[in-house]
Amino acid sequence: MPKAVWNDLIIAESDDTIVVEGNHYFPRSALRNDLITESGTHTFCPWKGTASYYTLEHDGRTSPDAVWYYPEPKPEAEMVRDRVAFWKDVTVVD
């Protein structure tokens, strides 16, 4: 089962991930709410739309914008709705 790991913590785990452009997208419900805060960062993907971000925080450590999601994906990217993906110092393992 795929897991997203940050600083030896499992921050998301699900057997219902999809891979888009090499990134595992986990159901939003699989992400631990106690480790995230909303970020003001937004980026734009021409085919998926505008991404929003969460910052990870735990035990004095932070990873700004390490989690992203598309709150209103474009129609061709509907498969990522209500899902999150990770980068920076988050590792996805099977």
Score class of each variant (00 low, 15 high):
Asp94Gln: 11
Asn7Thr: 06
Glu57Arg: 13
Arg28Ser: 06
Asp65Arg: 03
Pro75Gln: 07
Ile11Leu: 09
Lys3Asn: 02
Pro75Lys: 11
Phe86Gly: 02
Val67Asp: 00
Val5Pro: 14
Asn33Val: 10
Met1Pro: 10
Gly60Tyr: 05
Ala85Tyr: 01
Ala4Lys: 00
Cys45Pro: 04
Ala12Glu: 01
Ser39Arg: 02
Ala12Gln: 02
Pro2Trp: 13
Thr62Arg: 14
Arg32Lys: 15
Ser14Glu: 04
Tyr70Ile: 05
Asp59Lys: 04
Met1Ala: 13
Ser52Tyr: 12
Tyr69Pro: 06
Glu72Phe: 10
Pro46Cys: 11
Arg83Phe: 03
Thr50Trp: 08
Ala66Pro: 03
Asn23Asp: 13
Val80His: 01
Tyr25Lys: 00
Tyr54Glu: 00
Ile18Phe: 07
Ser63Cys: 12
Glu76Val: 15
Asp82Ala: 09
Asp82Phe: 05
Ser14Asn: 06
Glu57Phe: 10
Arg61Phe: 05
Ala30Lys: 03
Trp68Asp: 00
Met1Val: 14
Leu56Gly: 04
Leu35Cys: 08
Pro64Gln: 10
Asp8Asn: 15
Tyr69Trp: 07
Asp65Ala: 13
Ile18Val: 15
Arg61Ser: 12
Tyr54Gln: 01
Asn23Lys: 14
Trp68Gly: 00
Ala30Glu: 04
Phe26Gly: 01
Lys3Ile: 08
Gly60Cys: 10
Ser14Met: 10
Glu76Met: 14
Pro71Met: 10
Arg32Met: 12
Val84Pro: 02
Ser63Ala: 12
Thr55Leu: 13
Tyr54Gly: 03
Val90Ser: 03
Arg81Ser: 09
Val80Trp: 02
Val92Ser: 08
Val19Ser: 09
Pro73Ser: 03
Val67Met: 05
Arg81Val: 08
Glu76Gln: 14
Asp34Ser: 07
Pro73Tyr: 03
Gly49His: 05
Arg81Met: 11
Leu35Gln: 00
Asp82Pro: 04
Asp16Arg: 07
Thr41Ile: 07
Ile11Gly: 02
Val67Trp: 06
Thr43Ala: 13
Val5Ala: 08
Tyr69Ser: 06
Asp15Ile: 13
Gly49Leu: 09
Ile36Arg: 01
Asp59Gln: 10
Asp65Asn: 15
Gly60Lys: 01
Glu21Asp: 15
Thr91Asn: 09
Ile11Ala: 05
Ile11Asp: 01
Pro46Asn: 04
Arg81Leu: 11
Phe44His: 14
Pro27Ile: 14
Arg32Gln: 12
Tyr70Met: 05
Glu57Asp: 08
Val67Phe: 07
Gly22Glu: 02
Leu9Lys: 11
Asp89Arg: 02
Asp8Gln: 15
Tyr53Val: 11
Thr50Val: 14
His24Lys: 00
Thr41Lys: 15
Glu78Arg: 11
Pro64Gly: 12
Thr37Val: 15
Glu78Met: 12
Glu76Phe: 10
Ser29Glu: 08
Gly60Pro: 09
Met1Gln: 13
Asp59Gly: 13
Arg28Val: 11
Leu31Met: 12
Glu21Asn: 14
Val93Ile: 09
Lys48Ala: 04
Arg28Ala: 13
Cys45Asp: 07
Val93Gly: 08
Val92Tyr: 02
Arg83Thr: 02
Asp34Glu: 07
Ala4Thr: 09
Asn23Ser: 14
Gly49Glu: 01
Asp82Gln: 08
Arg32Asp: 05
Ile18Glu: 04
Leu56Gln: 01
Leu31Thr: 03
Asp94Ile: 06
Asp15Gln: 15
Tyr54Asp: 00
Thr37Met: 14
Asp94Ser: 14
